[in-house]
Design a protein around this nucleic acid. Sequence first.
DNA 1: CGGTTAATTCTACTCGTGGTAATTTAAGGA
DNA 2: TCCTTAAATTACCACGAGTAGAATTAACCG
Lengths: 216, 216
Amino acid sequence: MEPTAPTRKHRSGIVRRPGRPAGRTLADGVIADRETLLNAAERLILAKGPSVSLDAIALEAGVTKPILYRGVGGRDRLIDALAERLSARMGEWVSREVAAARSPHDAVHRLVSGYLDQTVRERNLYLYVSGGGSGEDRVRGLLRFAELTAERFAEGIANFRASRGANPDVATVWSFGLVGALHYVTLWLLRDTNADVNGVADQLTLLLCTGFRLED
Amino acid sequence: MEPTAPTRKHRSGIVRRPGRPAGRTLADGVIADRETLLNAAERLILAKGPSVSLDAIALEAGVTKPILYRGVGGRDRLIDALAERLSARMGEWVSREVAAARSPHDAVHRLVSGYLDQTVRERNLYLYVSGGGSGEDRVRGLLRFAELTAERFAEGIANFRASRGANPDVATVWSFGLVGALHYVTLWLLRDTNADVNGVADQLTLLLCTGFRLED
DNA sequence: CGGTTAATTCTACTCGTGGTAATTTAAGGA
DNA sequence: TCCTTAAATTACCACGAGTAGAATTAACCG
């Protein structure tokens, strides 16, 4: 008659009994911590590619789907969160590179090649974020990442322009343009992994520093 | 026992009996012509937004799903086709603008503002193409459109560079950068329709023509 | 110490969408 | 007239996002 609890086996292989777990309450917030879930998502996406499902992510995190939903709030929210993390890492990495630059031109070069390197390294995550969005907002991930990254760059651009007595109002548009240029060149690069990243970085740097050389 | 044919009602409201229709053969090729299907897709996407389904598109074309599949070959193929058409229209429009330019700087300005105008006009179609792609290739539409458009721009850039004795090898990277900058600024613009398109075009033109003004 | 309640989880389901197979009918020749 | 072939429709499958509700247990109070 089996009076003991069912002790079912979770799909992930983790043996877990249903029902309320001991000693914790939701207010503690420690269970299935958001960070843990996001880490699992990143791990799986990096490993398996940009087309992993939320089921698979929940599995990777050792958690069931509703828990994942409680933690991150659905696919769109997940994309937002990953975009934020990716952008933050990118910003950190790039600003470290830029800080070590010896000239403005060198700074741009480091920014570009740092961006490209970092992106190639986290290829799948980058593609996941870039290709995401549901319903009407099909470019959600793209825009989210763009906004966050552009915002970081905009400050630097505005400061630099202001320090030279130039109008800093262009900073927003310029930074979106910068991120866009970087992004597209990146996507193009990501098609084949044997591309000459350095050469491409040089060429893009040249464009960014001098433009088409059309003074009016 | 109902010996007569079922005479079912098609979802579109068209009454149609299943089975082979009279008087036509596939070799005639006139039925459900590819162009017609693509036109219907564009019409519906423009009207209803970028998240329309293939079912809805088939419905709009007055055709059943398998016919749509025979005609365009699945969602990815549809995205490819729409990207191609969009890019072609864009190229035509932009090159007409550029041809009327009085100076290189003016040409860039016309290119930018032409691109932005055209994109705002075909907003939903642009979003559909940008946000599409299934399976592993989540950025398919984005890349497809980028490649096609960049290719058009690359020729112009290479010619211009060559005519000034500059190295034209940068044309590919530069054109991807150009398209990326345009694309991101566009997406940012598309969020609110009351943006000052002209002002943004001016700012982006400045970036493209002179860069950050960092001669090395 | 036992019963009641509230909390929290898991399972199982719905719904929409891309894609395909099975079914049904018309055309055309032996 | 019958049979084969072509064509198009309906109906179905697979899969992923998101959610409702059953199931189970800890906590609390008499």
